[in-house]
């Protein structure tokens, strides 16, 4: 579904990605793990066309999208829920959800999708008239994911969905991610520092460090790997 091929990316003179390659198969959940500053956000920005690589290519459903603009990538079915949640605090909850269905492929299905989003997140239905700025952190993350679903994405990328949330809400969110993957048949790439949680839902994972992929494997192998355990799981 999504393939990053040998991405090299720089901010001005400083190169931050050194040949990152990864692949996400259709209908799978894949995790991209790594500590702060490893280059996770840059990888995502490049995939979404918000930054241009100096070398390498991005493919989505077999198409080269390296040079496409962000909005057209989003319209083609690849949706990112950014680390900063990406909800419009001055707009109402309903308006936020409607904006998710902005692309022409999602707009005709808007009412139907909205029903489903309200079934997955009943709290959003209760709060639909409220301004998004008044929501709590967990609710805002739900709104962000709900908004992403409104776009009828083929694939969803979640950047640090657990960031700043209470443990109970985090496991809640991850349950939803699994549910979306199974019921809505949405491919998911989840980018996390919370390795435990990510490996629980993902089938395959990549480890990013200092701008390069330093390890990869199925979740079972990674969980049993001695080095990984010491470096990331603190066991």
């Amino acid at each position: 579904m999504l393939k990053l091929d040998n991405l090299h990316v720089s901010y001005g003179d400083i190169q931050v990605l050194w040949g990152v390659s990864l692949e996400v198969a259709e209908n799978s959940i894949v995790a991209l793990l790594g500590s702060n500053g490893a280059g996770k956000s840059t990888t995502l920005k490049t995939a979404l066309g918000m930054m241009r690589p100096s070398e390498g290519k991005v493919f989505f459903r077999g198409q080269d999208i390296t040079k496409k603009s962000t909005h057209s990538i989003v319209s083609s079915g690849l949706f990112l829920v950014p680390e900063w949640r990406g909800t419009f605090s001055t707009l109402s909850v309903l308006e936020n959800l409607e904006l998710g269905a902005f692309s022409s492929r999602a707009r005709p299905l808007k009412d139907e999708t909205l029903e489903r989003v309200f079934t997955i997140f009943p709290i959003l239905k209760d709060r639909q008239a409220q301004r998004a700025g008044t929501l709590s952190g967990g609710e805002r993350q739900m709104l962000a994911i709900g908004r992403a679903l409104m776009a009828r994405p083929a694939m969803l990328i979640l950047d640090e969905p657990s960031l700043g949330l209470a443990p109970l809400i985090v496991s809640n969110i991850f349950e939803v991610i699994q549910q979306i993957n199974e019921e809505e048949r949405v491919t998911v790439l989840v980018v996390e520092q919370n390795v435990h949680m990510a490996l629980k839902v993902a089938s395959y994972a990549y480890i990013l460090e200092n701008g390069s992929i330093v390890g990869q494997g199925t979740s079972e192998t990674l969980l049993s790997d001695q080095q990984i355990q010491e470096a990331y799981l603190g066991i």
Partner: peptide, 22 residues
Amino acid sequence: YIGKAIRATAEDWQTASLSGIN
């Protein structure tokens, strides 16, 4: 829709483009 897109862009153009807004 255009009006909402304008308001969304005013608040945060990056998130707006991530919502598929040109």
